[in-house]
C-alpha cells in the first residue's frame, strides 16, 4: 500500500502524461479543527477528479474553483463552517490556508516519485513570488515549513520500523507501516523465511538482529518490533534496542511468554528494570485481535499513539 503522498504524485504524473490539466494543492496553515496535518496534499484533474486530501472532505468539493484562478501559483483561504465541521466529525469549524500550483514540472514529479520509491527523504521548496521550485535532500528531523513566502515540504519517510522476522504477521505490519509512511526494514537471518518475503517497498536485511538494531534503528525516530517468537532472534534485538533509544520497542507473545522474556532479559542479559519499562509486551493495543492482520492493526495503532501522543511531538 502506498502512502498518500506517493499516491498523489503517481496520479499527477499519470494525468500530466495523458495531457490533462492538473492543479496541485498543499495545506500550509490551519486554525481551529484541522482534519489533516499541514503538508497534506491533493491534486485536481481538469475534469474535477480529485486524488489526496487536504481537509478530509470538508472543502475538497470547492477545490475545483482553483481552476478559475488567474495566477499560476498562490495562496487561498477556506473556512470550514460549524455545520460542515459537525458533518465531518470535527469538534468545531476552522480555517485553512492552501497553496495551489497550476504549472507543474513533470520531470520534478518523476524525480520525487523515484526518491520516494527508493525511500529517500527529499525537501521540495517553492518560492511563492516567482513560482520557482527546487529539490534537496532533507535534513534529518526536518519538517514541513511555511512562512508566507516559501513552502518547504519534506517527502519520504522520516520514521523507520525495523521488524525482526519475515513471517506472516510481519507482512501485515509492513503493509500498514508503508501506508503510514514509515521506512520499513525487515531483519531476517533465516534464509527460508527471507526467501518468501514479498512486500514491495520493505527490504529484507540478513544481518543478525542486534547488528540490525545497532546499525539501522537505534535513534528516537525508529521503532523495533520483535516478531519471531524465537528468543534467539527476538532477545538479541531487544537487548540492543533497550540499550539505545528507539521511540518504540515491542515484542510479540502471550502474557506468560512476556513474563518469561522479561525474566530472561533481566536475569540472563542484565537489562535494568528502568530499561525494561520501555518494552511494550505483549505488543499492541488490547483490542481483542486474533488474526495476523488484526494484530498488525493493534501494533500499528499502539505505535501511532506513542509517536503522536508523546511529549516530544
Amino acid at each position: 500500500m502506498n502512502n498518500s503522498d506517493l499516491e498523489v504524485l503517481e496520479h499527477v504524473e499519470n494525468w500530466l502524461a495523458n495531457g490533462h490539466q492538473v492543479e496541485w494543492v498543499t495545506l500550509v496553515r490551519c486554525w481551529g479543527s484541522a482534519p489533516r496535518p499541514v503538508g497534506s496534499m491533493a491534486a485536481i484533474r481538469g475534469d474535477g477528479a480529485i486524488i489526496g486530501s487536504v481537509s478530509g472532505g470538508c472543502i475538497e468539493k470547492e477545490l475545483t474553483e482553483v481552476h478559475k484562478k488567474e495566477s499560476k501559483v498562490g495562496v487561498i483561504q477556506r473556512h470550514i463552517s460549524s455545520e460542515d465541521a459537525i458533518r465531518f466529525g470535527l469538534p468545531c469549524g476552522g480555517a485553512l490556508e492552501l497553496v495551489f500550483e497550476k504549472q507543474i514540472d513533470k520531470d520534478q514529479i518523476d524525480e520525487l516519485i523515484s526518491a520516494l520509491r527508493n525511500r529517500k527523504q527529499v525537501c521540495r521548496s517553492l518560492e511563492l513570488s516567482s513560482g520557482t521550485t527546487s529539490l534537496t535532500l532533507a535534513v534529518k528531523g526536518q519538517e514541513f515549513e511555511f512562512d508566507g513566502r516559501t513552502m518547504k515540504k519534506v517527502f519520504g519517510p522520516a520514521w523507520r520500523l525495523l521488524l525482526i522476522g519475515a513471517g506472516e504477521l510481519s507482512r501485515y505490519v509492513a503493509e500498514i507501516g508503508l501506508a503510514l509512511d514509515y521506512d520499513v526494514l525487515v531483519c531476517e537471518p533465516r534464509e527460508h523465511f527471507a526467501k518468501t518475503w514479498t512486500v514491495k517497498g520493505a527490504d529484507v536485511v540478513s544481518m543478525l538482529p542486534d547488528d540490525a538494531v545497532k546499525m539501522l534503528a537505534r535513534d528516537p525516530t525508529s521503532a523495533v518490533l520483535a516478531l519471531t517468537h524465537d528468543p534467539n532472534l527476538d532477545d538479541l534485538a531487544l537487548v540492543e534496542a533497550l540499550n539505545h533509544d528507539p521511540f518504540y520497542v515491542g515484542a510479540l507473545g502471550s502474557r506468560q511468554n512476556h513474563r518469561r522474556r522479561c525474566d530472561r532479559l533481566t536475569g540472563v542479559f542484565g537489562v535494568a528494570e528502568n530499561q525494561l519499562a520501555k518494552l511494550h509486551g505483549p505488543i499492541g493495543l488490547d483490542i481483542g485481535s486474533k488474526t495476523p492482520a488484526e494484530i498488525a492493526v493493534s501494533i500499528m495503532a499502539q505505535i501511532t499513539s506513542i509517536r503522536r501522543l508523546s511529549k516530544s511531538n
Binding site: L208, N232, D235, L236, V239, V268, F269, G270
Partner: peptide, 13 residues
C-alpha cells in the same frame, strides 16, 4: 553469569 551478560550476542538459547 556476568560473562553471559557481557557477551549477550554469543548467547544461544
Amino acid at each position: 553469569r556476568l560473562l553471559i551478560k557481557e557477551n549477550s550476542d554469543a548467547v544461544w538459547f
